[in-house]
Amino acid sequence: MSGTDQGLFRAAVMNPAAAVPSSLRDGSGRPAGRRFAVYRNNVAVSLTEALAEDFPACRALLGDETFRAMAGAYLRQHPPASPLMARYGAELGAFMDAAPQLSRMRWIGDLARFEFALRDSYHAADATPLGAETLAAIPPESLPERRFGLAPSVRVLRSDWPVLSIWRRATEAGAPQAQPVPEDVLIARPAYDPEPHLLGPGDAAFVDALGAGAPLGEAAEAALAVAGAHDATAILTLLIQTRSLTEPEPRP
């Protein structure tokens, strides 16, 4: 077998219109014919199923047929870059952003990135959250200088679309119709199940600043710069309740 035979095999597996490599036979030495379709089918179906399972809201809103057609195009342009199927689909949002046939659903890319972030959070490393007693013991006057870390499962998403409301509408019976407003979302994982929370104006900047190592006072200023007015109490409470705050990374 020449060094490129697996390349030819792969090209033929990914393109149903391509000729079956001539070195492939049945048990009697005849051309392999539709026996090769078993591999074509295994690859396309298994990757499509993986995407369908991992992007249920996108699938529900696009419809099964449209979603599978999209997945079929995506898997040929973006086959998995590693055997970790949990990481598959990272570029699906950008792929759908650029798909002309989806130009009337301009929020679909954000929805895919949101669903990917949920899965990413699910597999993220565990962390020891800061206990209430640790937080209560911080003297109020030193709070602005206090730094925190964020649990590795925390994700912040900013959307020009009501991405969380669209997701709820797609996945929860009786969820209200989404209103046409931008939504920022915090994904937190108090134990093993990621849960999304709607963020107020400036909150995303606040959380990102904390995550980047800024002390609380600076994070509050970052939020103010975005929102004009910002009360850090609500977002700080949310982070504590969702076990999202940790001790900060040691500073060099």
Partner: peptide, 22 residues
């Protein structure tokens, strides 16, 4: 079997010929 070619993982167990070289 093989499943990865040129950085792409194909999520299936693909066959190879049986020779001294393989």
């Amino acid at each position: 079997a093989w499943s990865t070619h040129d950085g792409a993982f194909l999520n299936d167990l693909l066959p190879l010929p049986y020779t001294e070289r393989t």
